[in-house]
């Protein structure tokens, strides 16, 4: 049935010259991919949706009882969970804003003719090539109040970056900004270099100020690609785990994914953690959708 709808393979392609038919391509590539997706993505997704309505615990042999919406009700009424969400939101805002400001700023600086531009760009990209766990471990040393190099360099004495409940989340965000600003920088740089030079020349002839040039020419033209960077970073920041988990154990840095991990793999409340995972999933999808809508609007301009 499906074969009837398929168009014939273009005779000039390499696959056709090797004698591959549409059907063999489907059998070789499409079906395994779909099967893979079903087995490793779709099935677990639906299975965990079922578990989210039960009191299942993976650590016992007790059968899973259907409890309806109880998990969702209890989670959404739990003040600790809401504080985890509030912390996550605060973290996302601070860290993504910081990354965009730093990343875009550095990109602006690099978007001109300077010596060793390629080398500088490559060196600036190094942080995001490191493993999250490694970054977490050595920033923990950098922040250390007794022998950390940050307090020494800034002359802050024994300032407690990670032990101070109010400061800890910002300390984690600063590490994240250090690590991921290069990513924003890279995308911004691509956007900036694509802005036609003649627009700047025209603006200069019209004696437009540098602020005016930036807000009327540079930003609107780089906006679509910057939005993509923001979408990626927001999604990543929303589900951040490694840095916060390694750097501190403050309740003020317990972002939602750490709570989820503890619930699922330390407390083995499998059913309830599935429900929490779904709540997080729905939130991420909603936020991403808002961005994508905005991105489309920006592109239309």
């Amino acid at each position: 049935m499906a074969t009837a709808v398929m168009t014939t393979l273009d005779q000039r392609t390499r696959a056709a010259s090797r004698g591959m038919s549409d059907i063999s391509i489907r059998n070789l590539f499409i079906i395994p991919t779909i099967l893979f997706l079903i087995v490793f993505n779709i099935f677990p997704l639906l299975y965990s949706l079922y578990y989210s309505f039960t009191d299942f615990r993976a650590s016992t042999n007790a059968p899973a009882n259907f409890v309806g919406l109880q998990n969702y009700r209890e989670l959404l009424n739990d003040p600790f969970i809401w504080s985890n969400f509030a912390i996550t939101a605060q973290y996302v805002i601070v860290s993504v804003t910081g990354q965009v400001l730093v990343g875009f700023g550095v990109a602006m600086l690099l978007n001109r003719d300077i010596p060793f531009k390629g080398l500088i760009t490559t060196l600036l990209l190094l942080p995001m090539m490191l493993s999250m766990a490694v970054v977490g471990l050595f920033w923990k040393l950098l922040y250390d109040p007794s022998w950390g190099v940050i307090n020494y360099a800034l002359g802050l004495g024994n300032f407690e970056w990670l032990a101070n409940p109010k400061m800890a989340l910002y300390a984690v965000a600063i590490t994240d900004i250090w690590m991921w600003s290069p990513f924003v920088m890279l995308l911004s740089l691509a956007g900036l270099s694509a802005v036609p030079k003649h627009l700047y020349e025209a603006a200069a002839i019209d004696r437009a100020g540098s602020f005016y040039t930036f807000f009327r020419i540079t930003l609107p033209l780089v906006a679509p690609i910057l939005m993509i960077a923001i979408i990626f970073r927001t999604m990543e920041a929303f589900k951040t785990f490694d840095l916060a988990y390694i750097l501190t154990s403050q309740p003020t840095t317990e972002v939602i994914s750490i709570r989820l991990y503890k619930m699922a793999f330390q407390e083995w409340q499998t059913g309830r953690s599935c429900a929490l995972a779904y709540i997080v999933l729905i939130m991420v999808i909603a936020i991403t959708n808002i961005y994508v809508k905005y991105l489309n609007k920006v592109k239309e301009r």
Partner: peptide
């Protein structure tokens, strides 16, 4: 009375 940063 703990050393500074004694929070984890």
């Amino acid at each position: 009375f703990t050393p500074p940063g004694w929070a984890k």
